[in-house]
C-alpha cells in the first residue's frame, strides 16, 4: 500500500469509518458482517481516510458506500469497475474499492469486470455472491445453480453458473480469492491481502441472502459439515481437508482433473502443492472450477502474482514523453504544422 498516502499521525477506529446513515439491509443479511469487517479493518490499513473511495453499481450490496464514512459513489448497474478505472487514471494514488454483486458484476457488468482484471487496474473488487437477485426480489443470477427455483425460474435454472474465480483467472487477474461472510477472521485476512496487493484484486464473498436464497452456503458454514466441505487453500501446502485432515485433492495426470481421496492412499493421482504465484494458472483454474458434489469448495487465495499496473503504466508513458520532450504548452499546440501568415493589405 506504499503508493497510497498514509494516515500519518492520525489513528482511526471503526467509528471513523461508520457513516451517519441508517443501514437498510434485511435482518440477517450477510452484508452486515462484511460491512463490519471492512469498517473494522480500515483503521489497520493506515490509509488516510480522505484517500479511500468506495464505488458500487446497483443491487443490495451496492448500497455499501453509503455506510462507509469515506468518499463514495453509488453508480449505475454493472459499471462500477469502469468508473473506478476512470478514477484511477485521474487519481492513481487513491485506494479504490469496488463493491458489487453476482448480477452487477457477472451479468450486466461482465464486460467491465473482465477488462478491469485483464488490465490490472489497481482496484479492490469485493464481489458479494448470494446466487440470486435480491433488490429486484428474487430472480436467478449468473451464479445460480442449475435447477435453482426462483421467481423467474419456477421449474429450475437451466444454464450453468459462472465460477467467479474461474472467470477472473481467465481474465488474467493477478489476485483471486474467495471467502465466506460468516467466517469473519478469514474474511478479514482476505480483505487485508487484497488491500496489500498491488493491482486488481477480486475477492468473491459467499454471502447469504436470508430472504431469497437462505442457506445457499449452509454446508460450508455448518459446524458439522464445513470441515468436509471446505478446502482451505494455503500457499505452499498440499490440498488437504477434512475433520481429521484425512482427505486430499490430487491431480490425475491422465485426465487432468483433481480427484478427491484419502491421505496416504495410492490412486494413481499426484499430490500437488498449492502455489499462489505459480507461473501457470492451470492448477488454480482446476481449483476454481465450479464446486461439484463430492468435492470440497476451495476458500482462500487462488492466485496472487505481480504484474504492471494499468494506470501507472498508462501515466508513465505520458511522464516519459514529458521527460523526453518537455511538458506541452499552448503555443506549440496551436502553432503547429504547416502555417502561413496573411498580412494586412
Amino acid at each position: 500500500m506504499s503508493a497510497v498516502p498514509g494516515a500519518g499521525e492520525r489513528r482511526y477506529t471503526k467509528k471513523d469509518f461508520t457513516s451517519d446513515q441508517d443501514v437498510r439491509w434485511c435482518p440477517g443479511c450477510g452484508d452486515y458482517a462484511i460491512l463490519a469487517q471492512l469498517q473494522k479493518l480500515m483503521p489497520d490499513l493506515g490509509i488516510a481516510k480522505e484517500n479511500i473511495v468506495f464505488i458500487s453499481g446497483i443491487g443490495c450490496s451496492s448500497r455499501f458506500p453509503y455506510y462507509m464514512d469515506t468518499y463514495g459513489f453509488h453508480t449505475i448497474h454493472g459499471r462500477a469497475p469502469a468508473i473506478a478505472t476512470g478514477l484511477k487514471l485521474a487519481r492513481p494514488e487513491l485506494s479504490v474499492w469496488v463493491v458489487t454483486g453476482d448480477g452487477d458484476a457477472l451479468s450486466i457488468g461482465g464486460n467491465h469486470l473482465i477488462h478491469a482484471l485483464r488490465r490490472n487496474v489497481d482496484v479492490k473488487i469485493l464481489l458479494f455472491n448470494n446466487k440470486v437477485y435480491g433488490l429486484t426480489k428474487g430472480q436467478y443470477s449468473p451464479t445460480s445453480d442449475v435447477g435453482q427455483r426462483t421467481k423467474s425460474s419456477p421449474s429450475g435454472v437451466v444454464s450453468p453458473p459462472f465460477s467467479p474465480p474461474a472467470l477472473a483467472l481467465g481474465s488474467s487477474a493477478t489476485f483471486v480469492a474467495r471467502a465466506v461472510d460468516t467466517e469473519v477472521q478469514h474474511l478479514q485476512q482476505m480483505i487485508r491481502r487484497m488491500a496489500e496487493h498491488p493491482g486488481a484484486a477480486l475477492l468473491e464473498i459467499y454471502q447469504n441472502c436470508p430472504v431469497f436464497n437462505d442457506g445457499a452456503f449452509a454446508p460450508l458454514k455448518d459446524r458439522d459439515t464445513k470441515q468436509d466441505e471446505v478446502l482451505m487453500l494455503e500457499d505452499g501446502e498440499k490440498l488437504v481437508y477434512g475433520r481429521e485432515r484425512e482427505k486430499i485433492l490430487k491431480l490425475d495426470p491422465d485426465r487432468l482433473v483433481l480427484v478427491p481421496g484419502r491421505v496416504g492412499d495410492e490412486n494413481g493421482a499426484i499430490e500437488i502443492v498449492h502455489r499462489e504465484d505459480a507461473e501457470s494458472t492451470m492448477l488454480a483454474a482446476l481449483l476454481s472450477e465450479h464446486p461439484r458434489p463430492g468435492f470440497p469448495t476451495p476458500i482462500g487465495v487462488f492466485r496472487s502474482v505481480e504484474r504492471p499496473v494499468f494506470e501507472r503504466e498508462t501515466l508513465a508513458q505520458g511522464e516519459a514523453a514529458v521527460a523526453a520532450g518537455g511538458a506541452g504548452q499552448l503555443e506549440e499546440l496551436i502553432y503547429a504544422g504547416d502555417r502561413w501568415r496573411v498580412s494586412s493589405s
Binding site: I76, I83, T85, A90, R91
Partner: peptide, 9 residues
C-alpha cells in the same frame, strides 16, 4: 462511465 469516474476524481 470512466470519464465520469475521472471527473469524480
Amino acid at each position: 462511465t470512466a470519464a465520469i469516474g475521472a471527473s469524480f476524481g
